[in-house]
Design a protein around this nucleic acid. Structure first.
Lengths: 184, 184
DNA sequence: GTCATATAGTTAGATAATCTAATTTATTAT
DNA sequence: ATAATAAATTAGATTATCTAACTATATGAC
């Protein structure tokens, strides 16, 4: 992630904020005829918001020295703990990354003793990944902050706005997960 | 970004999809008393969606061999072209990254001849960054795809749902930009 | 007018998160 | 028994970020 943590002094004359208008004007000139302008405008805002949302979450989790995506993996292990056998392969599939990338993630978490690997006795090619007591302690410590950060993302909305957003988000999420072939 | 491009075969038994329910149960057990459950649920969905939205955009832009964040910078240079003097410092401030990171980004774009640096004659410490004709050509080539990708993000929504989302998005974006101290 | 300080940009060196290709080990199927 | 397949890792690369140090230039205090 990366937001201005401390001492780094910026330009005297910062760029004036353009707002969305110039983007819309550019869109009028450059979008294909089949692209709905109103939808593209919405999508643009969604993308901007998505970027900022992830920055906020990483910022809120930074006191725990973990990024949102690694915390997400610990949460995954927490929720599957005792139920399914979680393997590096399954993690890679679930996160939409390569197995080699999952190995690297797990190495990082294992180094901090937050997860443990154990060779499967059924199929000795496989590895059983589980969260350790230390990992569970970290998750427990960070969860209240995580939930309050989630909640803070929509704190400005009125109750009816939240209601409207809820319905729309569920629909958008389902569609985009289908599209990317991922899903929690 | 990073989504399964091709040949990498995944686990036989993939993890069952949990859906949002187990997360909500965990929230009930672990959120602080002051955290509104309904808001946190919404925020969680927003975060998941945000992640997927950025993946979609990078995926759609990948044929142009550029990521969404670099494309965003080229767009920024396009929109400020002829108006403001754009310096690496101003870019760093605008993107919420360090000047050293901006230097690296600009090096990458300059290597491909999409941007040019020119020493300012007014203050010779400063560098004037501008998009080149080649950069402009790339942007023009990619923009129709960019807009259609934006539009595709919300293509499943009904007109009234879009209307509702529009109002809410504008509000959320304004608030989160204020919070992060960034903004376009 | 010189000298200390501040600013803009870059360089150097590090880390995280991803990738592909190759390798190792184990299982399955012909 | 051997070939093909599968799971995980290793090796080596790229991108995107960071901090700290450095260079060159400008400004401001005296």
């Amino acid at each position: 992630m990366g937001r201005k943590n401390n001492h780094d002094h910026f330009a005297d004359q910062s760029l004036p904020k353009l707002g969305v208008q110039p983007y819309l004007e550019l869109m009028d000139k450059t979008a294909s005829g089949s692209t709905d302008r109103h939808s593209a405008h919405l999508g643009l805002l969604m993308m901007w918001l998505g970027d900022n949302v992830l920055d906020v979450m990483d910022l809120e989790l930074s006191p725990f020295h973990i990024t949102e995506s690694k915390f997400d993996l610990l949460l995954l292990l927490t929720l599957h703990d005792g139920r399914e056998l979680v393997t590096p392969s399954a993690i890679a599939e679930r996160l939409g990354i390569r197995r080699a990338s999952a190995t690297a993630l797990l190495d990082w978490l294992e180094k901090r003793n937050w997860i443990a690997r154990e060779q499967s006795s059924l199929d000795r090619r496989m590895v059983h990944v589980s969260i350790t007591p230390e990992g569970r302690a970290l998750v427990e410590k960070a969860l209240p902050t995580f939930w309050s950060a989630c909640s803070s993302l929509v704190s400005e909305l009125e109750p009816e706005e939240r209601k409207a957003l809820e319905k729309v988000l569920a629909k958008l999420n389902a569609a985009i997960e289908r599209r990317l072939g991922v899903g929690r």
